[in-house]
């Protein structure tokens, strides 16, 4: 326990906390694995998120990157209490969301919103755009009737849609336009904090750039704080202030954008960055790739010691025995790796 506490203090140094809007400490999200047809017996856990700690400053964008199944989306959902976390704390401006319930939690929810990956599945096909964007206004008693309609039209204009589309249905819009509707819905309640879960990965390249630019404009205009979850490291470099890299339920490295991309310390970050193709044949010819062997292990049965030890090109004996501590190596450059102990 004492070691646990020590780790948390290092992961959240006091000066970093001064303007933090969100502080996540020791967040764990385990999903039970059951067996049996009629009588369900627990036979283990999927450790989707396993002891994750970080802070997000007001107005900042934290990028959360990793491959499929690393727990990045689950982290975002557990922060918003869309799942009940197994353990840990989520402090949002001095309130621990994990212990909140009912009406108090609902009132906090107004200040945090989510934008989803799939613009086709995340909009109800039987509701008009006006009702989709206006629903949060009604749920939170912000505006009704004509005031609601006016606010919806204003929101559509903000996200670059024609306000007169208010009576149309989602199927009448393209993927990029639907994502704008999702953004308008998130903005409706004037949130402070938005979790963006792969908001552009379902879109075509030329449309991606439109949405990224819109998200950046909205952040400046409304002083929004983003948790930007994505698997595309180029996009994350573009939009984030700081970046956290996840692997198999844990954050392995977290630092500012510049240092993460120019001086990655964790072997996984290094391999991940080297695997991303750069759209320039001259550079591509000269690049050396670190090709990782094999696949990500199952989160139901993570390896002993460091999670990455089964694929790490620089694995040592200690990595297979003991888990490395996630700690600050150099003024805000956090890494969990035995190479730096």
């Amino acid at each position: 326990m004492s070691e646990d506490n020590a780790r948390r203090t290092t992961a959240n140094s006091p000066e970093a906390n001064s303007a933090a809007l969100l502080r996540v400490e020791g967040l764990k999200m385990y999903f039970p694995l059951t067996a049996g047809l009629l009588i369900q017996r627990a036979k283990g856990h999927i450790k989707a998120v396993d002891d994750v700690s970080f802070t997000i400053q007001r107005g900042e964008t934290l990028g959360l990157v990793g491959e499929s199944g690393c727990g990045k989306s689950t982290t975002g959902r557990a922060i918003l209490q869309l799942y009940q976390p197994t353990a840990g704390e989520v402090w949002f401006e001095g309130n621990n969301l994990v212990t909140m319930k009912g009406e108090t939690l609902r009132r906090q929810r107004r200040r945090m919103q989510m934008i989803f990956q799939d613009p086709y599945a995340s909009l109800n096909p039987r509701m008009t755009v006006g009702n989709i964007v206006g629903e949060p206004l009604e749920v939170h008693n912000i505006a009704q009737g004509a005031a609601r309609r006016e606010r919806v039209m204003e929101l559509l204009k903000i996200v670059g849609l024609n306000p007169y589309f208010i009576n149309r249905y989602p199927h009448e819009f393209s993927g990029g336009q639907r994502q704008r509707i999702g953004i308008a819905r998130a903005l409706a309640v004037n949130p402070d904090f938005i979790v963006l879960d792969e908001p552009i990965s379902a879109l075509d390249v030329s449309i991606q750039a439109q949405v990224i630019n819109l998200l950046e404009d909205l952040q400046t205009e409304f002083g929004l704080t983003y948790l930007f979850i994505a698997h595309d490291l180029s996009v994350v470099r573009h939009i984030s202030d700081r970046v956290a890299v996840m692997y198999l339920g844990k954050i392995v490295e977290l630092t500012d954008r510049h240092r993460l991309y120019t001086n990655p310390l964790h072997p996984y970050t290094q391999a991940l960055l080297s695997a991303v193709p750069i759209p320039d044949p001259v550079i591509e010819e000269k690049r050396r790739r670190i090709i990782l062997e094999g696949d990500v292990p199952s989160p139901a049965n993570p390896p002993q010691g460091c999670n990455f030890c089964t694929r790490c090109p620089r694995v040592m004996a200690v990595c297979r025995e003991q888990e490395p501590v996630f700690r600050d190596l150099d003024a805000g450059h956090f890494v969990a790796c035995w190479l730096y102990e």
Partner: peptide, 20 residues
């Protein structure tokens, strides 16, 4: 122009293609 690049040291605004 609309591609964010991994080797972009000073990411500026992306030059998106407007419209559909």
């Amino acid at each position: 122009g609309s591609l964010p690049r991994l080797d972009d040291e000073q990411p500026g605004r992306l030059r998106s293609i407007e419209g559909l």
